[in-house]
């Protein structure tokens, strides 16, 4: 499902090149629940950028959901991204759209019929216990609710892989546990879940595979 082999990422720095990722070898099977941990600046976000085709490795191979990202042509990138669901620490909700419209976005991008969009978004909002907020704007919601909306948006199009970059970074421990419980449910439905976090407490409380990255290399 996700495979890195000898992947390197080097950015040109002002004084010297920055080695953001060094010789990453990693395999995550379909339906796995995996944590990626490491301190800030360890390379977690760079690794996620490569996974979502926002960047390409300087060398080595990255394959996700059957796509070899090195071979991906620019025009194929949007179609590859439709297989992913992505959740960010800062939620990245569109302030000018209602909750319903935010969640509907991935389906609109896929040109789904409006009737299907309505049914599917209502279903996901209900799963996230957000039905009553459907016509509100993100600024009217709490942090935990906003993160649930972001998760709903990442799930609505049935992605093969769910990537979450510090999804609990802005939430208190109780809300963090709620969010992880939601990811558990998603994983139970067969979706591969890959979460980047530096919250060791959260990782320790769960018995699942953990990959640690430090200084751009897996340890």
């Amino acid at each position: 499902m996700i495979e890195f082999s000898h992947a390197y990422k080097v950015y040109p720095g002002t004084a010297a090149p920055i080695h953001a990722l060094k010789d990453i070898n990693l395999k995550i099977e379909k339906g796995e629940f995996v944590f990626l941990t490491g301190p800030s600046g360890a390379g977690k976000t760079t690794l996620f950028r490569l996974l979502s085709a926002y960047d390409r490795p300087t060398s080595g191979r990255v394959c996700v959901s059957g796509f070899d990202l090195n071979e991906l042509k620019p025009k194929q990138v949007p179609f590859f991204r439709r297989h992913l669901g992505v959740v960010y620490q800062d939620f990245r909700l569109l302030k000018q759209r209602t909750i319903f419209e935010n969640v509907a976005l991935p389906l609109e991008v896929r040109r789904e019929k409006s009737r299907y969009i309505k049914l599917r978004v209502e279903d996901v909002l209900e799963q996230m216990r957000l039905s009553h907020k459907r016509d509100e704007f993100p600024s009217q919601l709490s942090g935990g609710e906003q993160q649930r909306v972001a998760i709903a948006r990442a799930l609505v199009h049935h992605p093969n892989v769910l990537l979450a970059d510090e999804p609990t970074g802005n939430l208190d421990p109780e809300l963090s546990r709620d969010i992880i419980a939601i990811f558990d449910k998603i994983n139970a439905q067969g979706t591969t879940v890959f979460i980047a976090t530096h919250d060791h407490e959260l990782v320790r409380s769960r018995a699942c595979r953990t990959i640690e990255i430090q200084g751009g290399a897996i340890v």
Partner: peptide, 16 residues
């Protein structure tokens, strides 16, 4: 800009 970035993230093509 945010909207465009998020649309790209969820697979919107340039034409969209």
């Amino acid at each position: 800009r945010d909207e465009i970035e998020i649309m790209e993230l969820f697979g919107a093509t340039k034409d969209m």
